[in-house]
Each structure stands twice: as structure tokens, then as C-alpha cells.
């Protein structure tokens, strides 16, 4: 569907994104694009959409009009009622369009139709763009931090709605997010970027196994717990936690036994994107520093 080869995007003298190994986005892919601020996530989407100049090749099997995007910030004329904005963008009569009405009800948006855009809450604004984007027949859709700036409850509700909406659809999705839990619900591939470089791209489960083993056990980072799990391999993780790498069932059983015997609370995970990405970055920079 989309093939990215030897891509370089510059803003002035600063290289914002470099892609050396080809990246393939295939039909029905559900890709999560992750990385910290300035990693190049939005730059990548902008390049794919042809909104910014770049060096290299982006081969697209889809026409630009078949690529939809929900940007981080979406603005609309603020002095006109929402229903009129929607009818203009979709070129439809809201009353007679079954799909749009389904989406309006699905996203609980009917009460907002007579409001002006400026009067909508953050969550309602995001839902408006979602309705507009989802009601059009795109082959590939990019979501750029759809839930940023929303409170936890609204975020959860939006993601639940998205998961439900796309559960039986074949649209290719490319979702940028800082919230890894959201991605877990929606995506099966991960593209990890950092400082404009591709750290990893592949199947979410494969990447987890590559960097974290079979499962991980996470507990609080304190001297007692550190002592308890010292015989086991430890993964790099956030400061406040310890992540035990369980490469097989036996290691996991032994670690669980130790933690339970000491009455330590722990979380077991077999697809933690955050810890996978921390360790992928660590290994990437270790390799590339050695290489240099």
C-alpha cells in the first residue's frame, strides 16, 4: 500500500527524520507509531501525506484522496453551526445519511450539532473530526494523537469506540500516540521512532519477544524487591519499577514463586509496549554507539 525508502526530511539544517531500511505499510495493517516528542512521528505522517518536502521515495498505491487523517489539532469555521460544517464537508444531508447518523449516535454527538465549534469541549471536538473522518471511505487512516489533551475517562471512551468501530473493518490504520495502553487495544504493529531515527518496526508480539522475552513481571522498585529478584534478568524500565524478564515458563514460575513468597504485588505482561520500547532504544543506541 505504502513503501517508504531512503527517506530524509529536513527542517532547515535540522534532520527531522531519516528512514534507511524500507518500511512497508500493507493493507489491513494496524500500526502504532510511538516515540517521544521530536521523534519524527508527525513528520512521517506529513511526508506520507505529501504535506512537506522530503528526499527519498514514498511509493503509494493509494490516491491522496483515499488517505484520511485525524490531526492532533483540527479546526473548523467557528461562527457556523456544526451541522452546516458537516454537511459542507461531507456534501450530504445529515437527516438522510444513515452512516453519518449512525456515527453521530455512536459517538453520542447529536446534542452538539446545533452548537458552534468554539463551544465544543475537547472531547466533542475530537469526536467531530472522528465522525467526519470515519464517515468517508478512506483506504488508510492516520490518527495523530487523537486523545492528547483529553481526560482519562474521555480518552478511554474514545478508544473503546474506535476499537468497536474498526473491529470488523478492513481500513488500514496508522495511529500515533503517547498512550501505550490505547495502542495495545488497536494496533498489531509498532513503528518506534527516536530523534528522527527508526528504532524498530514490526509485529507487536514479535518485538516484545525480541526485547522482553516471553513475559515480564513488574513490581515496585525498592531495596527489598531489588534483592528478591536479583537472581533474575532485569529489563530497563521506568525508575519507579522493576521489570523481570522471563524468557521461558520456568523462569516465570520461579520469579512468581519468589514474589508471592514475599507477598510482593506484581503485574504480569506479555505485550508491554513501553518496556519493549525502552529496551529497544537501549539496544539500538548500544549497537550504534559501538558501531561508531
Amino acid at each position: 500500500m505504502i513503501t517508504i525508502q531512503e527517506l530524509k526530511v529536513k527542517y532547515g539544517d535540522k534532520v527531522a527524520l531519516t528512514i534507511n531500511e524500507p518500511i512497508l505499510i500493507e493493507p489491513n495493517d494496524r500500526i502504532g507509531v510511538i516515540g517521544s516528542n521530536g521523534a519524527g512521528k508527525t513528520t512521517l505522517v506529513n511526508a506520507i501525506l505529501g504535506l512537506i518536502p522530503y528526499h527519498g521515495t514514498i511509493l503509494r498505491d493509494v490516491h491522496p484522496s483515499e488517505m484520511g487523517v485525524h490531526m492532533q489539532f483540527n479546526e473548523y469555521p467557528s461562527t457556523v453551526p456544526i451541522w452546516m460544517v458537516m454537511e459542507a464537508i461531507l456534501n450530504t444531508d445529515l437527516k438522510s445519511n444513515a452512516l453519518v447518523n449512525e456515527l453521530i449516535d455512536f459517538f453520542d454527538f447529536r446534542e452538539c450539532l446545533k452548537k458552534r465549534y468554539g463551544k465544543l469541549s475537547g472531547g466533542q471536538k475530537q469526536r467531530l473530526t472522528l465522525i467526519l473522518v470515519l464517515s468517508q471511505d478512506y483506504k488508510i487512516l492516520f490518527f495523530d494523537e487523537v486523545t492528547s489533551g483529553l481526560d482519562f475517562e474521555t480518552r478511554q471512551r474514545l478508544i473503546d469506540l474506535l476499537v468497536k468501530w474498526y473491529s470488523e473493518k478492513e481500513t488500514t490504520l496508522c495511529m500515533i500516540s503517547h498512550y501505550y495502553q490505547e495502542l495495545s487495544a488497536l494496533v498489531d504493529k509498532i513503528l518506534l521512532l527516536d530523534e528522527g531515527n527508526v528504532i524498530e518496526y514490526g509485529d507487536r508480539q514479535d518485538l516484545f519477544r525480541k526485547y522482553c522475552g516471553r513475559t515480564i513481571l513488574i513490581c515496585d522498585n525498592n531495596p527489598v524487591n531489588r534483592q528478591l529478584i536479583s537472581p533474575f534478568p532485569i529489563l530497563k524500565s521506568a525508575e519507579h519499577m522493576i521489570a523481570v524478564k522471563c524468557i521461558d515458563e520456568q523462569t516465570e514460575a520461579e520469579a512468581v514463586k519468589v514474589l508471592q513468597a514475599a507477598n510482593v504485588d506484581y503485574i504480569r505482561s506479555s505485550d508491554d509496549i513501553e518496556i519493549m520500547s525502552i529496551n529497544a532504544k537501549e539496544r539500538y543506541y548500544a549497537t550504534h554507539t559501538q558501531g561508531n
Binding site: 483515499e66 461562527t79 452546516m84 459542507a88 456534501n91 471511505d137
Partner: peptide, 20 residues
């Protein structure tokens, strides 16, 4: 999906925007 074309609804949006 084809690129969008000019529509009366788009013109109405602009007209109401002017009035508002």
C-alpha cells in the same frame, strides 16, 4: 474516493460564515 468538488453546501457554509 474522488477529490471533492464545488457544492451548494460549501458555498452556503462560506456565505453563513460571512454573515456571522
Amino acid at each position: 474516493m474522488k477529490p471533492k468538488t464545488l457544492s451548494l453546501k460549501l458555498i452556503r457554509l462560506e456565505l453563513v460564515s460571512i454573515l456571522a
